[in-house]
Simulated assay, not measured.
Amino acid sequence: MAMESFKHLWLGRDYGLIQGTPGPTAPHAHYAYQLMFSQGGPITASLDGRVTTAHHLFIPSRMPHAILHTDCEVVTVFAEPSAFDLAPLQAALADSELSLEALDCTLRQLPRRALEDARVERALLALDQQLSGKVSAHALAQAAHVSLSQLERLFAIQLGLPVRRLVLWRRLRVALGLALGGSTLTEAAHGAGFADSAHFSRTMKQLFGVTAGASLRNLQLTPLLP
């Protein structure tokens, strides 16, 4: 989603919070659940090709969507499907105050999903350790003590993404944190294992509908401690 007009980003390990006025985006799809709350005028968005106008929007993981119009401040929650069960997440956010502080408190208190298989946990740990360089799916499979085909099945069933797509998602999270922490786009790209800043920016547009340069403009980052 467009973050060029947003003012505040609170970024945690498995969720992010943004408060500000979003601009229009190109069609895109990302891994996170996305929930948008407007206390002013409505938000108009295309959700899987259907135009919807509402004050509260829920965008499922991997659903193609685009923000078309809103002229008021919006609070947006991004939550990792690997960490949160959807029904408790939606119920908790529906009852929460719509401030960054209150939403952060609500999300901290929500129980996390327990991965059903320790092999997936081992693969994710190995993935995070390799993000600054080339990530080998075969090396992840070896760390999990499974074959590559078994690893792909486990990721699809338990995480909802193939290995390659999850690597891109986690690289993007690292690159955003580096760029918002003061690194140049090139430094952030290399620190997260992207080939260059152009690769970082293309991935940003693919997953969030805007380029890295536009998305990071005027953002104030608050890193959330575990």
Results as ranks from 00 to 15, higher is better:
A83W: 12
G133C: 00
A126K: 12
Q130C: 08
G20V: 10
L98N: 05
P81I: 07
A139Q: 12
A94I: 00
V146F: 04
S147Q: 09
A29I: 02
A45R: 02
R62N: 10
P42S: 15
V146C: 12
A45H: 03
S99R: 10
I67D: 02
P22H: 14
A26G: 07
A32Y: 00
A126L: 05
D117F: 12
R112N: 07
L151C: 10
T25Q: 07
P81V: 10
L154H: 09
H56Q: 13
G40S: 13
L47C: 05
L115K: 01
S136R: 02
H30L: 02
A144Q: 06
A118S: 14
R112Q: 09
Q150A: 13
H30A: 07
E97I: 02
L93G: 01
L159H: 11
P162S: 14
R119W: 09
P27D: 06
P27M: 09
A123Y: 10
V146N: 02
T53Q: 15
T44Q: 12
A156Y: 03
Y31V: 08
A87G: 06
C72R: 14
F37G: 01
L154I: 11
L57P: 01
G20F: 09
R113E: 08
S96R: 04
I157N: 15
H145K: 13
P42D: 12
